[in-house]
Design a protein around this nucleic acid. Structure first.
Lengths: 357, 357
DNA sequence: ATGAAAGCGCTAACAA
DNA sequence: TTGTTAGCGCTTTCAT
C-alpha cells in the first residue's frame, strides 16, 4: 500500500499557518518569521514526518543540486578513486553524485550528456580525456554548449578538446622524474611501454620519458619503446617482447605508462622466471592502491587521484558560485620508490661498462 | 550569459498547436495525434533545441527515475564492481545511478537516506551488510519504512537487518568448497584468517570453513583461526602470527576471509621469505580483478560481483514494476584455482604422516 | 484529434 | 510578520 507523503500544504494546514510561512521555516529562508509560528510549523512537520520534495524545489529554483562524474569505467581503480574524491566534496556541499560510465564510447557519453541535460544537472566532471572517435569533438562541443548556456558548469580532469576549466596531474614532470630516478640508480638502457596512442596522457608520459633521456645525453632507442594499451595484457606481452631482445641490448629497467601495464609486466616477467628487481627493474605510473599491495611492491609515480577528484569537484562548485577559477591547474606528481626498482645488476653493469667505456 | 532553455510552451507556440498536443508528441504518449501535428511539433522542438525537463516530469509523475546504490566505499574494488553492475542495468533501463559512500558510518548512511527521500529516489540498493552501531537497525528501519510507504523499492546485496528482498552470494558454500579443495590437495592443517566479527558475511565464511573441516573429520584447531579485519594490514599481521607457530604445528595452507586479507598475507609472507605456494598455500574469497594480476595469481572463491550488482538492479526494477520477486536469491560461487595453492610440500607431508599415522 | 486547465510541491514577489 | 498567488515545466483528465 502506497501512502502519500505529507507536503508543505499539509504542514501549513496542521500548523494553522499559511503555506508561505511554512515554506519560510522549512526552507531555511532568512525571511523573518515569529518564533511562535516557527515552532508550530516545526512541530507539524515533525508530526507529519514531512520531507521536502527536492524535485519541486529544484524545478522551482532552476538548479538540481545534482552533479555528474563521467568516467570510462568506475570499476577501474583509477576512476574509482576520482569518483570517490568527487563524491566526498559533493556530499559535504549538499550535492548528489551521479556516476556515468561511458566505456570510452562516444554514443554512451553523448547519451549521458543528454540525460544530464534533461535532469538539469548543475555540473559535469569529465574524469578521463577526450575520446578518439570521428566527429567526437564537434558533437561533444555542441552538447556541452547547451549545458553551459543553461548555466551548468563543466570541468575536465585530463587534457581534452573541450575548452573548459581543467585540473590535471603533471604527467610530463612525473614521467620525467621517474626516468631520472632510474638514471640515478644507474640505468642507461631504459625501456618504455607506451599507452594507447589516442590517449593524450599516455603520449604526454612518453614525452616526459623521452625528454629525460635526451637531457641525460642518452640516445632514444626505438627498439626500447614497446607499444602498450594501458591494460595488464599489454604488459604481459611487453614482457614477452623484452625476452626477445638479445641480452646485451635488453633494457635494465622498464617504465610502464601506467600501473596496470606495470602489473602485467610483473606477472609476465614472473612467468618467464625473470626476477624483479634483481634482473630487471620495473615501474609504473599512477600509484593505484594495489601498487603497494603487490609483491614486490611497485615503484611508481604518485598521482593524488582522490585529491584530483576532490579538487575537480571544488572547482566545479566554485564555478557554480560564479567565482573566477583558473583555466588550468596542475597537480604535482612524485616518484614513490618501492621494491621493483634497484640498481642494475653486476652482470648488466658489466655490460653497460662495455657499452659506454 | 545564461540563455533560457526552451520549454514545451515555446515548442507548442512555435508549432502553432496546444501544449497538450506538444506534450503528447514529446512525451511519447500513446495518445493519438495526427501525423501533421506530430511533424509540426517535432520540427519546432528540433528548431528550439528542446530538451524535456526531467525534474518537472518527475514531479508530475511522482517518480524520479533515480536509483541509488549505497556502499561503504566505491573505491573498494568489491563495491566498485557492484556499482558498475548496477549502473549498467540502470542505464539500459533509463535510470540514473547515484553513488552514496557511507564509510560504514551510521550517520552518513542515514543522512543519505534522508536526501534520497527528498529526491524521491525510486529505489535504493544496499550493497553492503548491516552496520554494527547502537540503534542502527531501528533507525534504519524507520528511514526505510518511509521510503517504502512512498512506493520506493529497496534491495540488499548482503545479509541485513532489513526485511526487504535480497540477493546474495553463497558465502557459506563458497567457503566450504574452498576448504574442501584444500583438503583434496592434501592439506590437513588449514588456517583461517577471519574478517571483522561484526560483519555477517565474514562469519558465514568462517562457518563454511568450519563445516568443511568437521565434515572431513578434522579437528578445528582454535590456534589456526587468526583474527583479521578484511584489510591488507590484518593479512600481514596474520603472516607474522603464522611464523610464531612452531613449524610442526604450522598450517600448510591459509584461507583468508577475503581477497584483501589474502593479499596482505602474500606480501607479509613474501617479506618473511616464506615461499607461496611451495612452503604454504594461500587463498582468498571474492576474486577481485587484481586476484589474477598479482604474482603468483591468487587462488580464490569467485563471486560474480558485477553480476550481483546487475541482478540487484534488475530485482529493484522488477519491484518498481510491481512484479513479484523472491525474498531471497542466492548467487552461486565457485573456487578458482590459481597459483597460490598446491599440495603440501614433502616436508610438511612427512610431518602430516607423523601426525596421522 | 485537439485544446483548456488543473495540479504535482515548492518559493518568492507582492499585498496586507 | 503573515498571507495570497503566480508560476517553475510537465502530463493528464475532461471537454469539445
Amino acid at each position: 500500500m502506497v501512502k502519500q507523503v505529507a507536503s508543505i500544504v499539509d504542514v501549513a494546514k496542521l500548523a494553522g499557518v499559511s503555506i508561505a510561512s511554512a515554506s519560510r521555516v522549512l526552507s531555511g529562508s532568512s525571511y523573518p518569521v515569529s518564533e511562535e509560528t516557527r515552532q508550530k510549523v516545526l512541530k507539524a512537520a515533525q508530526e507529519l514526518n514531512y520531507v521536502p520534495n527536492s524535485l519541486a524545489r529544484s524545478l522551482r529554483a532552476q538548479r538540481s543540486n545534482l552533479i555528474a562524474v563521467l568516467v570510462g569505467d568506475n570499476a577501474d581503480p583509477y576512476f574509482a578513486e576520482i569518483v570517490r574524491g568527487v563524491e566526498d566534496v559533493a556530499n559535504d556541499c549538499g550535492y548528489l553524485t551521479i556516476v556515468c560510465n561511458s566505456d570510452r564510447k562516444k554514443e554512451k557519453e553523448l547519451n549521458y550528456l543528454r540525460i544530464l541535460q534533461d535532469y538539469r544537472a548543475d555540473g559535469v566532471i569529465f574524469a578521463g580525456g577526450a575520446l578518439n572517435e570521428p566527429g567526437y569533438p564537434a558533437q561533444l562541443e555542441k552538447a556541452i554548449k547547451s549545458m553551459l548556456d543553461r548555466g551548468a558548469a563543466v570541468v575536465t580532469l585530463a587534457q581534452h578538446t573541450l575548452q573548459v576549466p581543467s585540473i590535471q596531474a603533471d604527467n610530463f614532470a612525473g614521467a620525467r622524474a621517474m626516468t631520472q630516478y632510474l638514471q640515478q640508480l644507474g640505468h642507461r638502457r631504459i625501456g618504455f611501454v607506451s599507452g594507447p596512442t589516442n590517449v593524450t596522457v599516455a603520449n604526454v608520459r612518453l614525452q616526459g620519458y623521452m625528454a629525460a633521456m635526451v637531457e641525460a645525453g642518452l640516445q632514444i632507442d626505438p627498439g626500447l619503446i614497446l607499444s602498450g594499451n594501458f591494460d595488464q595484457a599489454s604488459g604481459e606481452m611487453a614482457a614477452q617482447a623484452i625476452l626477445q631482445i638479445p641480452p646485451e641490448q635488453r633494457p635494465t629497467a622498464v617504465f610502464a605508462a601506467n600501473d596496470e601495464t606495470a602489473f602485467g609486466l610483473l606477472s609476465g616477467l614472473g612467468r618467464l622466471k625473470i626476477r624483479v628487481p634483481q634482473e630487471i627493474s620495473v615501474c609504473g605510473f599512477g600509484d593505484l592502491p594495489m601498487a603497494q599491495m603487490v609483491v614486490p611492491a611497485l615503484t611508481t609515480v604518485h598521482i593524488g587521484l582522490r585529491e584530483l577528484g576532490r579538487a575537480g569537484a571544488r572547482k566545479l562548485l566554485a564555478m557554480l558560485h560564479r567565482e573566477e577559477v583558473p583555466p588550468l591547474e596542475v597537480m604535482p606528481t612524485h616518484v614513490v620508490p618501492r621494491d621493483t626498482t634497484t640498481s642494475p645488476s653486476v652482470a648488466s653493469s658489466a655490460l653497460k661498462m662495455v657499452d659506454t667505456p
